[in-house]
Simulated scan of single mutants.
Amino acid sequence: MKPMPGPGPVLRSPLGLAHAVTALLAVVIVADVTHFGAAAYMRSVMGDVASGGAGDVDMGAVDRADTAVASSSLLYLIGVVGTATLFIIWFHRVRHNAEVFAPDTQRRTPGWAIGGWFIPLANLWIPRGIAQDVLRASQPDPYASELRHHRLLNAWWGMWIASNLFDRLASEKYDAAEDPQAVHDAAGWLMAGSVLDLVSAVLALLFVRRLTAAQNAKAMAGPAFPPAPQHPAAGGPVPAAGGPVPGA
């Protein structure tokens, strides 16, 4: 006698996590704007220092600019750490739901939705592939040739990689700057990095909201069962097995 199969995975609502991630992404956006303003102030101050004489240097303005850059960088770091933590939890949740919607469209196990982010270099493509699979499973028709919102996924992922690489380059330039002109130029790089990161955060926010909405809509629509087959002996329909899938 074959053993009875155990209960399969059930849907778990991603709405609460999505709201929390959205709120933290808003904090990151505010931090980006603040950091842009601090870097612009530093650029202005260092421009004045570079073009003026030693007697024209306002050391108070230099100290204020330096404090502004350091404080905004700390705010950004706190926002990013908190957002990344909750985002990965949300990401694992929507991957778990994809196992209910269409498990045969998933190329990696749910654990990769967490572990894939921590593998150097491989984290540049593994999470995107998982996101693409989850996006497919969350469609009304998972087997459709066209993926809804795939352009948003590609835009967010490309901007996320670009902003991370640019931020590292800008930080290195700023840390290595030793004279006023070099600090002035490096502050411009910080400003550009803040803009790229802001765009990345906005795209991430939109992706979280749209994927969560897609999963919620599919869960609320309920399961779609094929027509009941005819019983070979009695000639009547056989009731479909299982019950409704819990809504998100």
Rank of each mutant, 00 (worst) to 15 (best):
A233T: 10
G236R: 05
A233D: 13
A221P: 03
G242R: 07
G222H: 04
G247W: 04
P237W: 10
G243R: 06
P226K: 01
P226Q: 02
A234P: 00
A241L: 11
P246K: 03
M220I: 06
G222T: 01
A221E: 08
G243V: 08
G242C: 04
P246L: 12
A233C: 00
A233H: 11
G243Q: 11
M220C: 07
V245A: 00
P223L: 07
Q230P: 00
P237L: 12
P229T: 06
G222Y: 00
A241Q: 09
P237T: 06
A241V: 10
A221Q: 10
A234W: 11
P232C: 09
P239I: 12
H231A: 15
P239G: 03
A221H: 13
F225E: 03
P227R: 06
M220Q: 14
P223R: 08
G236Y: 06
H231T: 08
P232G: 08
M220A: 15
G242N: 07
P244F: 12
P229F: 01
G222I: 03
A219C: 04
V238G: 07
Q230Y: 00
A240G: 04
A219S: 15
Q230V: 15
G242P: 02
M220D: 14
G247V: 13
A228M: 08
G247T: 13
A240L: 14
A228T: 09
G243D: 12
A240V: 10
P232V: 09
M220H: 13
A234T: 14
P223S: 01
P232L: 04
A233F: 13
V245K: 00
P227I: 02
A234D: 12
G236N: 14
G222E: 02
A240D: 05
A240K: 02
P246A: 08
A233G: 01
A234Y: 11
H231M: 07
A241N: 00
A240Q: 13
G243S: 13
A241D: 08
G242S: 06
P223T: 00
P232Y: 06
A248S: 15
G236E: 13
A248T: 11
P239Y: 07
A233N: 03
A219W: 03
A248M: 07
P237S: 13
P237D: 14
G242K: 04
G222V: 06
G243H: 11
G242M: 06
A248G: 13
P244Y: 10
P244V: 03
G222C: 02
F225H: 09
G243M: 06
P232A: 11
V245R: 00
V238W: 01
V238K: 02
V238Y: 02
A240M: 14
G222Q: 02
P246S: 08
A234S: 15
A228N: 08
A240P: 10
V238D: 03
P232R: 06
A224N: 05
P227T: 09
G235K: 05
P246E: 13
P237H: 08
P246G: 04
P227H: 09
A228S: 15
P239H: 03
P239W: 08
H231N: 15
H231C: 15
F225D: 05
G243I: 02
M220K: 14
P244H: 10
G243A: 13
G242L: 07
M220R: 15
P227Q: 03
P232F: 12
G247A: 14
P244L: 10
G235N: 09
G235S: 08
A224E: 15
P229H: 07
